[in-house]
Amino acid sequence: MADPQSNPVAYVSGRAATQGRVSGLHARFMLFAPYRWFHGMLSRTGLSSRTLVIMVPYLWLLMFFLAPFLIVLKISFSEVLIARPPYSALFEMVDDTYLQLRLNLENYLLLLEDDLYWKAYLSSIRIAAISTLITLLVGYPIAYAMARAPRQWRLTLLMAVILPFWTSFLIRVYAWIGILKKEGLMNLFLMKIGLIEQPLTLLNTDIAVFIGIVYSYLPFMVLPLYANLEKMDESLLEAASDLGCKPLKAFWKITLPLSIPGIVAGCFLVFIPAVGEFVIPDLLGGSDTLMIGKTLWAEFFNNRDWPLSSAVAVLLLLLLIVPIMIFQRVQQKQGGVG
């Protein structure tokens, strides 16, 4: 093969010769009848093989993402039955003449009447909102320090923030059980330094859930904040200090307002998944920690009420669609992806 530097054209065409087997493969496949038939079908319908390749992810998502939702919606309007599958049919042939549609609104009525579900929705929002606020308060100083760190450290610091995100969520939550339980490391430590005399009940409380969410979602807060703070124009702060502005006031008047897009992005990235969280409230929270993800799980796996859990899912989705839409809009306005 030619030396790429001395003769780029020869290099490319040399590489191209080895890549030429793609069309060679097509020629060889044309010997097989099914491929030939398929190819003929495609050219007759006017669909190129390119279009076909493109169709695959589209069809996949239609089949395994959109269609399942419609099914959830459908089942949420049906009645629970002790049968296989455990729900009634929405459409039924009556006397073989006309199709009857039976919409059963009972599941939704139950969700509205039984205050257990209301409480679970409200408590999910409350827990997610408080945790998001704590995550912001914890994450901001970290992102700020990362953005101010010497340039040669930044990539390493960034990697260090991302790395926990790659390790198992379940394991990270599990690690806190050993720390927070009654005879756990936290109580051991606090008693050793003499701060408390009796071990505190930390596990199976809302506090443990807050800690779990803050810990698990901290990278989601730090990354957008860091991306925002890192781009900030330093000369603004210099100008402020030249004009006699104290650093703390300059932070309050300049840095903080300019970082609002990062704050908004981080808060949404923490809040939205936290509302529907299941693992954290289940493992760290107590039996009285109500969260809607946990309720859905219990309805489905423990009570086997598929229609009701579908209705819970539909309402959870409706609850989340507002923040998701706002987030999309904000991201698009900032020229981000979306």
Binding site: Y58, L61, P68, I75, I272, G276, F300, I324
Partner: peptide, 24 residues
Amino acid sequence: LFSGMIYAPLVMPEVITGLSLLLM
């Protein structure tokens, strides 16, 4: 629709994705 279907699973609560796939 396509870009919606690409971005939605990223923010969808796992319990909903799991439940809907199972029901399908």
